[in-house]
């Protein structure tokens, strides 16, 4: 990734939130933060909500407190989207990821403002947003390349052609990093879907706003319904379901929390779920992106086929 110094002048943050600071008397229109399942913005079936609070004690919004049933619905959506998404041309997946970046770029200001409301300094917020856009572009570019990095043609004995290719593992449940509410989420989402998986993300519990706004940009990015599903709510309530569900093939967990990791690993035995822990990644650095994040959510398939062996008799071959 490029050096991430951000030119402040490149940001346009003069609308909406900043107007308030200028003291205009217009009544603010508050946004309802809905969850995103199967390409639709829904309220949680539980009807519950919570009110995350920033350091200044301001209530950020009424945010859906998702239940296991919301998760269940999201898994159904992700599973039914998997076949179509995984068999799309890789180039097309790349273009959709690029489209996401484009849409995000156009709404930078909104994300910066949201991050700031969630206690991120302006400088850091601007940096995080730009990094997020770049990260999407990074993975957009990988969509049709990682296969070439991780595939092999294997020189087996006997008259056979044999090759190994990565294939998406399936439906992935992801607990997004609690820090970096935007960059962190995109850093774990992008490699999952770049690799043809579909996913259910749980947004940062304390800083969930960007996740839902991100869903709005995704929604406008030609991303098919169900490929990305974003839930909000309490990690402690939901994590068990993320790890237990029998139709989830892999779970990503990003906190450095040994007890939870142990619980997740134990639950993963239910269906031999792939359990992936990114517990010490600095998402804002170079180590936060790599094709190996894609490969972590891939299975390797090896295919054999006989080769008919006629000819090659003389020297004229």
């Amino acid at each position: 990734m490029e050096k991430t110094t951000v030119k402040k002048s490149s940001l346009s943050v003069s609308e909406n939130g900043l107007e308030r600071k200028k003291g205009k008397k217009r009544l603010e229109v508050l946004k309802t933060y809905k969850i995103y399942i199967n390409g639709q913005f829904l309220r949680t079936e539980s009807g519950r909500y919570y009110q995350p609070v920033n350091a200044a004690g301001e209530k950020l919004a009424n945010v859906c407190l998702c239940s296991r049933k919301d998760f269940r619905d999201a898994v159904v959506a992700a599973r039914s989207a998997f076949g179509g998404w995984s068999s799309r041309p890789a180039l097309n997946r790349g273009q959709i990821l690029y489209r996401m970046a484009e849409m995000l770029e156009g709404r930078k200001a909104q994300f910066v403002e949201e991050l700031q409301r969630q206690d991120v300094s302006k400088t850091k917020a601007e940096k995080e947003v730009l990094l997020t856009v770049d990260r999407l572009i990074y993975y957009a570019g990988w969509c049709d390349k990682y296969q070439q990095i991780f595939s092999t043609v294997n020189p087996v004995s006997g008259s056979y052609f044999n090759f190994s290719v990565p294939e998406p593992t399936g439906v992935v449940s992801i607990i997004a990093p609690q820090d970096y509410p935007l960059l962190g989420l995109v850093s774990v989402m992008a490699p999952a879907i770049a690799g043809g998986n579909t996913c259910i993300l749980l947004a940062s519990e304390k800083k969930p706003l960007c996740a839902i706004t991100l869903a709005e940009t995704l929604h406008a990015s030609d991303l098919p319904p169900g490929v990305v599903n974003i839930l909000t709510g309490k990690l402690s309530e939901l994590i068990k379901w993320f790890a237990e569900h029998m139709d989830v093939n892999a779970t990503v967990f990003c906190e450095n929390d040994v007890e939870t990791q142990k619980m997740l690993k134990e639950k993963s035995a239910l269906n031999v779920k792939r359990m992936i822990f990114y517990d010490n990644i600095k998402w804002e650095t170079e180590q936060g992106q790599s094709p190996y994040f894609i490969f972590d959510l891939q299975e390797t398939k090896t295919t054999w086929h006989p080769i008919e062996n006629i000819g090659f008799g003389g020297g004229a071959y």
Binding site: G158, N162, K301
Partner: peptide, 16 residues
């Protein structure tokens, strides 16, 4: 993880 087309139960050290 392993798909054999027009053959079956073939193994090789080079083949994952």
């Amino acid at each position: 993880g392993v798909v054999w087309a027009n053959t079956y139960n073939k193994f090789d050290p080079t083949s994952p």
